[in-house]
Amino acid sequence: MSILIFIDHIDGHIKKASLEAISYGVAIAAQSGDTAEGIVLGSPEDLAGLGKYGLKKIHQVQSDHLKSFDSQVYTKVLGQVVEQTRATTIIFSNNAIGKSIAPRLAVRLKAGLISGAVALPDTSDGFLVKKNVFSGKAFANVSVTSAIKVVLLNLNAYAIKETGGIAEVVPFNATVETPKITVTGSTKTSGKVSLAEADVVVSAGRGLKGPENWQMVENLASELDAALACSRPVADAHWRPHTEHVGQTGVAIAPNLYIAVGISGAIQHLAGVNRSKVIVVINKDAEAPFFKAADYGIVGDAFEIVPKMVEAVKKMKGK
């Protein structure tokens, strides 16, 4: 029996989310006395190095048919790996690729799916996992009744742990179908930090008055190696791309630090950001509801405070 962890990669790099998923899967294996094994489709860099997170073995499937991502093709390959490894729990990151494959694989294996797990399963009596519901406004403990379980682990929900070691990478000979989905183009915001994975997020709202005023927010984000986000009306007005819209109907995030500038803190906005570990609010209105959800705040004009903050961060880093 084993715990199988799906290892995700983009442009040859293994995502931070996958390291979290590996650490999580290794911890489950330690808890149940099973072994944790990785599965990778394609050929990212430095697979053996993933051993330092506690993985002993990584199954690798290589095929030209895996270059265009088609969940149907990927799922069939994973089904073969699960069968051969007799995996009982399969872990994915709750990101775009995980969300596309995990539900399919769950059906294929007739396995219960936990989507958005935020803690290790409690296996003292069955298999009980804590997950977010109501866009982070609450959580639920969900029990899985099937023999096989599929878990989608939320990003930034489980800390990466290094235990040391080297993983053995073994080729897996799978039947890989021709994809029906063809990728014809992509736009990547590469180089910049991805919003869902970012440790620090700097976000701004309608208080900034217009898209021409974003430079100071970008400066702050760049000083902090942060990703940028915005409130919904800002994306609706096309001041910023819709991929930056956070909240109940946008991206849900859980960074270590969320800095909200000129955002009132409407309930729908909070729903997507309230799992952030530390929230900083900058708003000229002391009555803005966001202050109730914040850890630190400054009441004042963003146009004065943000540039000062950029300077203060520079100074702090200079020390």
């Binding site: 959580f139 403990n141 969900v142 009744t145 109730k292 705040g297 203060a312 100074k315």
Partner: peptide, 29 residues
Amino acid sequence: SLTKIAAFGLPPAKAGVKLVSADNVEELV
């Protein structure tokens, strides 16, 4: 069905905001 919600819970309430003066941005940092 293959899963069942055993119980719900609410996240712990925040301790309250620590306000820093607008003249003292360095203190926030």
